[in-house]
Amino acid sequence: MQKPLQQIVAENPYVPMPVEVIKIITEVDSKDIKTFRLAFVNKEDEERFKYIPGQFAELSLFGKGESPIGIASSPTQKGYIEFTVQKAGVVTSALHEMEEGTLMGVRGPLGNSWPIEFLEGKNIVIVGGGFAFTTLRSLINYMIFEENRKRFGKITVVYGARSPGLLLYKDELEAWGKRGDIDLNVTVDKGDSTWKGREGFVPTVCKEVAPSKENAVTVICGPPIMIRFTLPVFFDLGFSKENIITSLEMRMKCGIGKCGRCNVGSKYVCKDGPVFSLAELDKLTKEY
């Protein structure tokens, strides 16, 4: 006699919770990045899927496989979870072919998270580049949620993309820009005829914005080249390695520290990460 699926899911971390794709948003002009809004088929699963910004989940397509993707929605958004996915491999390509109303699976939430308690009471500087803005978006929406806003100090955001058409979450960026409680700095490497905003690379913009190191933490996510040139800016501003937080990516399968491929030294990115401070990363091997 088979147990009900809700019970199996509660006991077995390999079995995905069934979800329905309720909305698909094409984020960029190149159409290869889409946001998938998923609703849990079983109400109990929604209760069970308690997450914190910075965590990820395995998106599960039976017949194709699984892909670990950061959660782009904020836990303050009820009734659904969102993932912004670039079309790249077998699973993400199949995902991009899907239509609203399709059933798929989610395993998670997995990994640690942005260190919310550590961030509380501090000024937060968010630095994001390109497609790596997804879990930062989760964090921003979490912090600016009405009941949460007073738990955090000044919020500064520097977000860059190569071109205006490659910026994610355009409607939200506009809404954040109208709020008085975020210092929002959106930049593109090169604008187009309609672009009225800032032009320039993320490291340069960070230098211009020059957030104070006083009681401040930087949370940074982006392509390696952006990270490489942005970190020195924050070192020059006097930020300590304990106060610069980032998130790693590695190939993953199980997501729960068993299958053995995502370790950096003794730590598993899936279980002990993906979020690490630079001080923590300094203690690990440089194999990622």
């Binding site: 088979q2 079995v15 069934p18 039976f62 399709t102 059933l103 798929m104």
Partner: peptide, 17 residues
Amino acid sequence: LLMKYTRSPKGMVFAAM
């Protein structure tokens, strides 16, 4: 074997352990 699944009108769904 970790789990079995099957085709439904709305996509592949879990079938059995």
